[in-house]
Design a protein around this nucleic acid. Structure first.
Lengths: 329, 329
DNA sequence: TGATATGATGTAACCGGTTACAGATAAAGG
DNA sequence: CCTTTATCTGTAACCGGTTACATCATATCA
């Protein structure tokens, strides 16, 4: 049952049916009721591909919301991850006649600003359940990028940190390293939590005691106190698994200050697979996350939600790839 | 740059360009080369929606592969899960002009049978890396349903067992139950493994010793020995978390044979949210998996892979929903 | 050499929607 | 009562592909 058949049944033109379907203004009350009734009676189901194809004639507008904290990093070395994600979003937007506008997550949005916005992408680990609820309440299509909130049913695109971390730890174990420390960021960021869980799961499965330290990358503080504490309490570990490349590089720099050699004394593994990590000396062993794909997939998914009806919310996880390089044996 | 512009540049008709794009037979060598060169030069990118819309004029053929083991269950009480998944697949197929054919996973497929097959859905936890490699080698579009294999990059649709299980355990803890046993199926089935991991993670986080038993539902054996062993070694637990509804119901029946009352003596929680579980006495507390959605999403994803170019393989996880019912306090 | 089969290519209809534009009708204003 | 304006509705072009069918050149064969 397509729009033309509905039009015939309701004795109106296809344009009118389309107008009703899109809540267009200029339809009289009686006509609208008549069409709605017909749509329901014949269980009309919109063809998503036809809609998407036809919709190319209009521009779609999407808000990209990023926390101040991440926005600040965006052009620095530590900001490579989200820069690449943004690249992916922009590519996908260009290919889909979509206008994107970057907005600070902290700014409060009145209805006016959101009037002609078709959907929203919430970027990064600072996204909270509150943010999600705000947009869900007003029925705004929504996708979280690099964040997952178990308690809220909402679409998101993340990397598979659990398996990535598990792989890293198993690799180290296969190299006969058993004293493995995990240094991670805030665990309310799902990315960090997920990697942490993968690390802990493998360690405990093998019967080893997980040993982890949280590093607050917000304050950009010196890492010396943390490493100092680790060394004095725990001794020199065989390996350090850091929850991202930035942290891994900081760890390496700090360890070298302590005259500890990488990878001879300690193997260090990062996460993300950034360019800076690759060009770092020593070149960083890491788990590569397809950052551009994360961005483009997220935008694609958002457009699916905007244009297709009854999409069921899902979590989309991207595979990571282990990159053995110079910072580990 | 669309197909018409390419046609103009290459000085051929749009039909010819389409033929080249679809590796149709009837194109002369020189024309094909000319068109291919033009496509490359202008970086032609197919519009997936136009393709999908136009493709409605053809039927797509998809193989649904199920292991003998699951096939046998399909019409029994224990087979509700995959029956519902199949329903979802069929619905989606009907809406997408797709012909599906159910095939035993164990049957060996010669090239002939796969000649006009556009894609394959591999159903259930019996799918192995071998199966995947076979289809990947011949470039066959592929989606796993209710199975995930960390070592192979391939699309799959699964339920989020980790969070579901975590939720169940946390719920029990909130009811002041601390002696929680997990009874699960084969852990090479990702669904069971994932739920197991969620259970273990929460237990260990709280500092409790995880206690789990594997139940082989293949042999359809009596559960008495297993329960007997559990009771003698471990005593009567406060709760049992089973890795699916079928196991949960068997556990309840067996416990009742031991004159243990549900939920007064022991709370039992299942997983899946089947109808039989709902109608069971006592009605089963469980985590509901959107089974039909799992099926329809998998087929949708498969068609995406068949028709859109460069889709990046992902794991799609579905949310579960906790259903508090009579088998638990 | 003329009839017929074969292969390559083009034309136009079609997939199912959206929307610019035109036309009709009714209300408001002079 | 005629003109202007606002509101509603319909027609047809368009989004970017696929494919049935027609056409035409060439090869095959009696």
């Amino acid at each position: 049952m397509n729009i033309r058949e509905i039009a015939k049944k309701a004795d109106v033109s296809i344009a009118t049916v389309s107008r009703v379907l899109n809540n267009s203004e200029n339809v009289s009350f009686v006509t609208r009721e008549k069409v709605l009734e017909t749509l329901k009676r014949y269980e009309f189901k919109m063809d998503p591909w036809a809609k998407r194809l036809a919709s190319k004639r209009t521009v779609t507008k999407v808000f990209i919301m990023i926390s101040k904290r991440i926005m600040k990093q965006l052009n620095s070395k530590t900001g490579e991850f989200y820069s690449k994600v943004m690249e992916g979003i922009k590519n996908s937007a260009k290919a889909n006649r979509t206008m994107i506008e970057t907005v600070e997550m902290e700014s409060n949005l009145d209805e006016d600003k959101l009037k002609n916005v078709n959907g929203v992408l919430l970027i990064g680990g600072d996204t909270t359940a509150e943010h999600v609820r705000f947009f869900k309440k007003i029925g705004m299509p929504l996708v979280l990028v690099d964040q997952y909130i178990p308690t809220v049913k909402v679409d998101c695109v993340v990397s598979n940190g659990y398996d990535g971390a598990s792989y890293a730890v198993k690799y180290l174990l296969s190299q006969h390293i058993r004293k493995i420390v995990h240094i991670h960021g805030f665990l309310n960021h799902f990315g960090f939590k997920d990697r942490y869980s993968g690390y802990v799961a493998v360690m405990e499965q093998i019967g080893l005691l997980p040993k982890s330290y949280e590093y607050n990358d917000d304050i950009m503080e010196d890492m010396k106190p943390l490493v100092d504490k680790m060394l004095s309490v725990y001794g020199v570990p065989g390996a350090i698994f850091a929850s991202n490349d930035s942290i891994a590089m900081k760890v390496i720099e700090t360890l070298e200050d302590f005259h500890i050699k990488i990878p001879e004394d300690v193997s260090v593994i990062g996460f993300d697979g950034t360019e800076v990590g690759k060009n770092f000396i020593p070149s960083l062993t890491t788990l590569k996350v397809p950052m551009r794909e994360m961005g483009s997939l997220a935008l694609k998914r958002l457009l699916d939600i905007v244009y297709d009806q009854d999409v069921y919310p899902v979590r989309i996880s991207l595979f990571t790839e282990f990159m053995k390089r110079g910072s580990s044996i």
